[in-house]
């Protein structure tokens, strides 16, 4: 039986009254601390490449790549999900979280084989991120080029 609209709305009001709220302050503190700490670690690698004389724009690339490797490795060790369940977006939003989103399904679906398991499922979460980022970036760049003329970024 699908409830009629009044029943549904009355139930939604009841649910809203009783629903537990996420511990917002605790989540925010965790997200800030862990997210900040991950970025500070990233700053170590960024500093390393800057000190080797790379310009900032170039140095961010290998620094991010090292962090990706680190995130993937911590996922492999089974540590990253433990961090993530407390730190929430503090662990998911840094690029280490992107690495986690690729490594975790790759590991999980290893039991379905190397091609259709690991190969296909690797992009379960990262796929949407890449697709959306690329699509929006093309639109943004096109608009910017039309409005301001070719700028070279």
């Amino acid at each position: 039986m699908k409830a009629d609209k009044p029943t549904t709305e009355a139930y939604q009001r009841l649910v809203k009254r009783k629903a537990p709220r996420p511990p917002l302050l605790r989540n925010v503190i965790w997200a800030f601390t862990v997210g900040g700490a991950i970025c500070a670690v990233g700053q170590v690698f960024l500093g390393f490449f800057l000190l080797r004389g790379m310009p900032l724009r170039e140095a961010t690339v290998p620094a991010a790549a090292v962090m990706v490797g680190l995130g993937a490795f911590l996922t492999g060790l089974g540590v990253y999900d433990e961090i993530g369940k407390r730190a929430g977006m503090g662990a998911a939003l840094p690029i280490t979280g992107f690495a986690n989103s690729i490594t975790s399904p790759a590991m999980e679906f290893r039991s379905e084989g190397l091609v259709l398991g690991v190969g296909a499922r690797l992009f379960t979460i990262a796929g949407p991120v890449i697709v959306w980022a690329l699509a929006v970036a093309l639109v943004v760049a096109a608009v910017k080029t039309l409005v301001a003329g070719p700028t070279g970024g």
Partner: peptide, 17 residues
């Protein structure tokens, strides 16, 4: 978990519900 939600090693936060 892997059928309904996310891979087990994915670092996601679960809501209180």
């Amino acid at each position: 978990e892997r059928q309904y939600r996310f891979p087990t090693e994915f670092g996601t936060q679960r809501p209180p519900t």
